[in-house]
């Protein structure tokens, strides 16, 4: 990485593609490759990947800890945002930390899939044990995400430097990558 940083760009092989404009992700297990051209923000890419599988399920304890509240005459306006049934007074419902209320059945079903509030996305505590189990137990999705992150870091050094240099607006002056231009040197792998 350091040697790349110090190299004069003029001395690079002419067909080498600027890594700032083309990001290649390789999945070592599936031998799959993702080429992202014109990617301008490393951070946004990383953020997107982190969100790829949505919020993990809420912990059992946190679901059980949600208070049960009664719908009273003064607060019976509105509906359960999950089943769209209007509140009936004196019904017992569950109240999340963010104050949003849902039928117990409705919200528990959701929180076991994704641990956030359906209305405001307030995030519930995640069961660490569950997460660990999934990761070690070969949950492919998570494994894949972690691998991508590692590869990503290996590109970040180049990308950041060039970003700082001159490329404030890569979309307006991007080099042309015609299908014929890629060569072996483009396909950097994790090193």
């Amino acid at each position: 990485m350091n040697s790349m940083e110090e190299r004069d760009p003029d001395q690079e092989e002419p067909q080498t593609t600027d890594p700032n404009e083309r990001i290649i992700l390789i999945h070592p297990l599936a031998q799959g490759m993702v080429v992202i051209e014109g990617a301008t923000s490393l951070e946004s890419l990383l953020r997107d990947m982190g969100n790829k599988y949505g919020q993990p399920p809420a912990s059992k304890a946190s679901i059980e800890a949600m208070p049960r509240v009664e719908i009273g005459e003064d607060n019976k306006d509105g509906e359960c945002a999950i089943c769209l049934e209007e509140w009936e007074s004196s019904a017992i419902v569950r109240k999340m930390t963010c104050k949003h209320r849902f039928h117990g059945n409705c919200v528990e079903k959701w929180l076991k899939i994704h641990g956030n509030c359906p209305v405001c996305r307030y995030e519930m505590p995640v069961d660490d044990e569950e997460l660990g189990k999934k990761r070690d137990g070969g949950d492919e999705g998570r494994e894949w995400r972690r691998t991508e992150r590692e590869i990503w870091v290996s590109f970040a050094f180049n990308g950041n430097r060039r970003n700082g240099d001159s490329n404030e607006n890569p979309s307006s002056d991007s080099a042309d990558f015609s299908p014929s231009s890629p060569s072996a040197t483009d396909y950097e792998t994790e090193s």
Binding site: G38, A39, S41, G54, A81, I82, C106, W110, N116, P118
Partner: peptide, 27 residues
């Protein structure tokens, strides 16, 4: 996809699709 919420509806999802027409994200 992953950012779905059961508080969204077919109508609000279609409104989001309509908003997507206004604001393409080529990245």
């Amino acid at each position: 996809k992953d950012q779905w919420s059961p508080a969204l509806t077919l109508k609000t999802a279609l409104l989001s699709v309509q908003a997507l027409l206004s604001t393409p994200e080529p990245g």
